[in-house]
């Protein structure tokens, strides 16, 4: 007799098998990237050879640092991404909070206007921004690239933050008002702490979007402001050697490592449920 339990057992087994497949599917690219970065020649090896490190070397990494001018690009990436986070938060947190305080049509109009900016593909913005920046002398500067990034971040972040602030129950602010909060106190000591984890998560997202951004950098960074995503392209091809996949792989590992470390350390902030228990239960 095939009991219900055995049927259930079979179903679980199938689910696990599917999950396993999915795991391999999603982990294979990054694993292959790391493997390729640690082998001498990546291109003509079979994946199995690469995974067994038949031709193990750290040479690709030292090449990436020396020939790749890694620290130059890294500095640009850090400065642009970090500034993008700071400025986005300074602009968008008050903006979004303010939007949740106005009601009706005005709010919808502003919210839609902000969101509508998101409809524009970046590539449409890149060329006009380039022409404008050339005229303003901002082309090839970190400031110019940063401004381009902000044109993406600000609408996106504002829209996210309005959503966060909307989850704060109005009774919480009323309790604050009765307790004697000034408007600033209300914002800083009552409402903002409640959405803190959301703000931190957003900051990480903004950082990662800036860190990975390529298109604007290609158009606007000139020579002096190039971030890592552009830096990697110098190994893509050249008269002498063709694409150097081992170095590209090493470089790519170096590009994503800080982001992964950053996300892992900040992970504890990205815990929802801060508002649990504030209201009802």
């Amino acid at each position: 007799m095939i009991s219900a339990r055995m049927k259930k057992h079979g179903a679980i087994w199938i689910v696990h098998a599917l999950l396993g497949l999915w795991l391999v599917f999603s982990l294979l690219p990054p694993v292959m990237l790391v493997a390729a970065s640690l082998n001498r020649t990546a291109l003509f090896r079979s994946p199995l050879d690469l995974l067994m490190f038949r031709d193990f070397t750290l040479e690709n990494f030292s090449q990436a640092f020396t020939r790749g001018d890694f620290w130059f690009f890294f500095t640009n990436s850090v400065i642009i991404s970090a500034s993008a986070v700071v400025i986005t938060l300074i602009v968008c947190v008050p903006l979004a909070y303010g939007l949740t305080k106005i009601s009706g049509r005005a709010r919808e109009a502003v919210s839609f206007g902000v969101l509508a900016m998101r409809f524009i593909p970046y590539v449409v913005l890149a060329l006009p921004l380039f022409l404008i920046f050339v005229n303003l002398g901002l082309s090839g500067s970190r400031v110019g690239l940063l401004l381009a990034h902000l044109s993406i971040h600000i609408p996106f972040a504002t829209w996210m933050l309005v959503g966060f602030f909307d989850t704060v129950p109005h009774e919480l602010e009323e309790a604050g008002i009765v307790d004697g909060c000034s408007p600033w106190n209300l914002f800083w000591n009552v409402t903002l702490p409640v959405v803190r984890s959301g703000v931190v998560a957003l900051a990480i997202l903004v950082f990662i979007i800036s860190w990975n951004e390529y298109l604007f950098a290609l158009f606007l960074a000139g020579n002096d402001a190039q971030p890592l995503t552009v830096g990697i392209t110098r190994f893509l091809g050249g008269a002498e050697a063709g694409a150097e996949y081992g170095i590209i792989a090493a470089y790519a590992v170096l590009v994503i490592a800080p982001v992964i470390l950053f996300a892992l350390t900040a992970n504890r902030f990205i815990v929802s449920g801060m508002t649990a228990g504030a209201v009802k239960g």
């Binding site: 009323e174 309790a175 009765v178 009552v190 409640v194 508002t275 504030a278």
Partner: peptide, 12 residues
Amino acid sequence: AMVFQNYGLYPH
């Protein structure tokens, strides 16, 4: 001083 229906406690 006011006591609210949903308590209005500061969660943090």
